[in-house]
C-alpha cells in the first residue's frame, strides 16, 4: 500500500507545490508552521480541493484535477486524527468510537489504547491525553486505507506527549496502512518516522527514509537542540555487567538498560549534541562508545554552532559542535575521525 501525492495549490500569497510518495509506515511531513503541511493533509482527506494535482491511495484515485475526480471525504476511507481530537461532545466515548463503524467488534482497539474504563464517559470529562487516545481509536475503527494525523500531540503538555507517543509507535508497527503524520517537532519525527518529507514554504526540500533525511545536516537548523539521527541496530549480546552490545553496520555500540532479546532489531536515536569528534584515537576517557567515522558533510549555522554529518559502516548520524572546534581541529569532508557517543536512546 502506498500513497502518491502531487498537489499544487495557491492561496493568500502562498504557493504550495508538493510531490512525494508515502509508503507503509509513518511518513512524517516535517516543517515549520506555514510550510503547507496541513494543506496537504486536508487535500488528502478531501476537506480541501487543490487547484491542480493527483492523489492516489493504493491504486485508488481520490483526486485528479485533469479527469475531474474528487471523491468526497466520506468515501475516501481515511482515518483522520486531528490536533484538537474533535470528539463529538454529545456522544459517549463508545458512541464516538463506533461512529465510523456502527457494527463489528471494537475490543481489540479498546484494549490497545486502554479505553475500557472510559467507554461510558462524555468527551467533556476526558483529559487531553485521554481524548486524543479516543480520537486515535475512532480513526482506527473506521477501517481506513490511510491514517492522517495532524500534529496530534501539539496541543498536549510534555507528560501527555510521552503518554501518547507509544501508541503511535504501536500504530506504526501494527497498522497495515500508511500513516501520514504532520509535525513540526524534530523529536517526534525522529522517534516515529520511517519516511520523512521536509517542507519549506510550500516546497518539498527533502524526502526519503528517516535514516537518510534526519542525518542530513541541511535539514535541521543547527539551533535546534533536538536535532538527531535515527539508526537501525541489532542486539548482539547481553554482558554480565548489565550492558548490551548492539551492532550498527560494522561497528558496535555498548548501551545500558536494554532487555530486548539477542537478534532483535532496534531503532536508536542519537542526538547531535551527544556526539563529540576527536581527530586521534582516544585513551583515558570514560565514554564506552568511540566509533571510527568519516565526515560526509559540514553545515555551519547562523550562530556559533555547526552540524557535522558522520558515517559509520553505512549508517549516517550527526554531531553538533562549535564552529571554533571545527576550525581548531581543521575538519573537512572526507576526513576520518573518531566519534565519541555520550548517550543513545532506544525506542523499541
Amino acid at each position: 500500500m502506498t500513497v502518491q501525492i502531487n498537489i499544487r495549490h495557491a492561496f493568500d500569497g502562498f504557493d504550495l507545490a508538493a510531490r512525494f510518495d508515502a509508503p507503509k509506515g509513518v511518513t512524517a511531513l516535517f516543517g515549520a508552521s506555514g510550510s503547507g503541511k496541513t494543506t496537504i493533509i486536508n487535500a488528502v482527506a478531501g476537506l480541501l480541493a487543490p487547484q491542480n494535482g493527483r492523489i492516489v491511495v493504493d491504486g485508488r484515485v481520490l483526486f485528479d484535477s485533469k479527469t475531474g475526480v474528487n471523491t468526497p471525504p466520506n468515501k475516501r476511507k481515511i482515518g483522520y486524527i486531528f490536533q484538537d481530537a474533535r470528539l463529538f461532545p454529545h456522544m459517549t466515548v463508545r458512541q464516538n468510537l463506533t461512529y465510523g463503524r456502527p457494527t463489528g467488534p471494537i475490543d481489540a482497539v479498546v484494549d490497545m489504547l486502554g479505553l475500557d474504563s472510559l467507554l461510558g464517559r462524555r468527551p467533556a470529562k476526558l483529559s487531553g491525553g485521554e481524548a486524543q487516545r479516543v480520537a486515535i481509536g475512532r480513526a482506527l475503527l473506521s477501517n481506513p486505507d490511510l491514517i492522517l494525523a495532524d500534529e496530534p500531540l501539539a496541543a498536549l503538555d510534555e507528560a501527555r506527549k510521552s503518554e501518547i507517543l507509544p501508541y503511535f509507535e504501536k500504530l506504526r508497527d501494527h497498522a497495515k496502512v500508511p500513516i501520514l503524520y504532520v509535525s513540526h517537532s524534530a523529536n517526534e519525527v525522529a522517534r516515529l518516522a520511517t519516511t520523512v518529507v521536509v517542507l519549506n514554504k510550500g516546497r518539498v526540500t527533502h524526502a526519503g527514509s528517516a535514516e537518510t533525511v534526519l542525518s542530513d545536516p541541511t535539514v535541521t537548523p543547527t539551533g535546534v537542540r533536538s536535532a538527531g539521527a535515527v539508526m537501525q541496530a541489532r542486539v548482539v549480546t547481553h554482558d554480565d555487567d548489565g550492558l548490551t552490545v548492539l551492532s550498527i553496520g560494522a561497528s558496535n555500540l555498548i548501551v545500558p538498560n536494554c532487555d530486548a532479546p539477542v537478534g532483535t532489531d532496534l531503532r536508536l536515536r542519537i542526538a547531535a549534541q551527544d556526539v563529540m569528534i576527536a581527530t586521534a584515537p582516544l585513551s583515558g576517557i570514560s565514554a564506552l562508545n568511540t566509533l571510527p567515522a568519516t565526515i560526509t558533510a559540514i553545515r555551519k549555522g547562523d550562530g556559533p554552532g555547526a552540524l557535522v554529518q558522520l558515517e559509520t559502516g553505512g549508517a549516517p548520524f550527526l554531531a553538533r559542535i562549535t564552529q571554533r572546534s571545527l576550525t581548531a581541529l581543521g575538519l573537512t569532508v572526507g576526513q576520518t575521525v573518531h566519534a565519541v557517543i555520550k548517550a543513545v536512546s532506544i525506542d523499541r
Partner: peptide, 13 residues
C-alpha cells in the same frame, strides 16, 4: 464545522 468535517472523514454523508 470542524466536527462536521470529522464526521465526514468517518464516512458519514
Amino acid at each position: 464545522p470542524k466536527l462536521e468535517h470529522a464526521a465526514r472523514t468517518l464516512g458519514a454523508g
